[in-house]
Simulated scan of single mutants.
Amino acid sequence: MSNQGKQSQKLLLFRLFGSRLFGIGTLKIREILPFRRVTKLPHSHHAVIGTATFRGSAVPVIDMSAAVGYPALTKEERENASIIVTDVQRREIGFLVRGVQQIIETDWKSVMPPPKALGANVFITGLLDTGSNIIQLLDVELLLAKVYPESLDTQEVMLSEVQSETLGSLNILLVDDSQVARKQLSDVLDSKGIHYHVTTNGSDALDILLKEHGSGHPIEILVSDIEMPGLDGYELAFNVRDNSSLKQPYIILHTSLNSEMSLSYANQVGANEALTKFDAEELLQAMLRGASSSTFRADTQSASSRSIG
């Protein structure tokens, strides 16, 4: 496959407890700061140690160790700790970690999904074997959902009867490795009585696309996360666009990243749109744009059409 569908991923490695290493993508990170004084928040989650000022704004700081079930850092340990300021799901959050290790470069094909035996509530989206260490990639979305459960509440979106019927007539596929993101996506469509397929990774998504095409009911709207173990969203989009035998779906890449670079790259690999998680109104409107796009009209004339709308 062409290198156009591939993008290297930089990971920040850090420690939470003992010598075990964890990682998050650097595209999520705004800045890494030494621990600073925080202002306590009343009635907050036990893992929220307070707020710190970052570039003139008050940013909540979460003790990541406490949030995932390890012992919280003591006051003495905090003095040598770091705060990773992230930009995730349209909000700035600081994560207190025991120690920042290094930044490494990898690609998502090297990342393995976590064993199913770990259960549904594990805070890990993938494992990376570097030869000397097994890096655990943290599910930041799940962590935030545990600390801020209200973030899972999906706002009610008003659709006309025609719009609901339009979306209900489409063959839709949702792809996301995060259980929190899958629930948010599913809740939106369930609330409107819209049928869909859902899977956790790009490889299975590609199989569903091929199977549905072969059965005469091709996928028309593909909503995929970007950062996933194995076949990530970029490569999935590129593989779909590179397969001239497939009726081409309208591709929406859906990401917790607010990085303009990641959204720009989504268009380069053939995605029609790239949205930052999570706004139900934006998602449904993007699907409606897909339903009326020239992609579907062109595909009735040529299965190899690649209109980017």
Score class of each variant (00 low, 15 high):
Pro249Gln: 11
Arg36Trp: 04
Leu170Glu: 14
Ala298Leu: 06
Gly230Leu: 03
Leu275Cys: 07
Val59Met: 12
Asp187Leu: 01
Val162Thr: 15
Leu33Met: 07
Lys192Ile: 06
Leu127Glu: 09
Ile29Gln: 02
Thr255Leu: 00
Ile208Gln: 10
Ile208His: 03
Lys28Tyr: 01
Leu96Phe: 05
Phe14Cys: 15
Tyr196Arg: 07
Ser244Ala: 12
Arg15Tyr: 03
Val140Gln: 12
Val111Lys: 00
Ser292Tyr: 03
Ile226Gly: 03
Glu31Asn: 13
Ala58Glu: 15
Glu282His: 01
Leu253Ser: 09
Ala52Val: 14
Gln184Thr: 02
Asn258Ala: 14
Gly193Glu: 10
Gly99Ile: 03
Ala266Ser: 12
Gly94Phe: 05
Val269Tyr: 02
Ala298His: 02
Glu260Lys: 03
Glu220Asp: 13
Arg306Gly: 09
Glu79Thr: 12
Leu253Glu: 11
Leu284His: 05
Arg55Pro: 08
Val240Tyr: 02
Val68Glu: 10
Tyr70Ile: 09
Pro115Glu: 09
Leu16Arg: 04
Leu33Ser: 08
Val88Gly: 02
Trp108Thr: 12
Glu212Gln: 14
Met64Val: 09
His195Ile: 13
Leu152Gln: 14
Glu235Cys: 06
Tyr70Gln: 11
Glu141Ser: 11
Phe95His: 06
Val240Ile: 07
Gln268Pro: 05
Asn133Pro: 01
Phe238Ala: 15
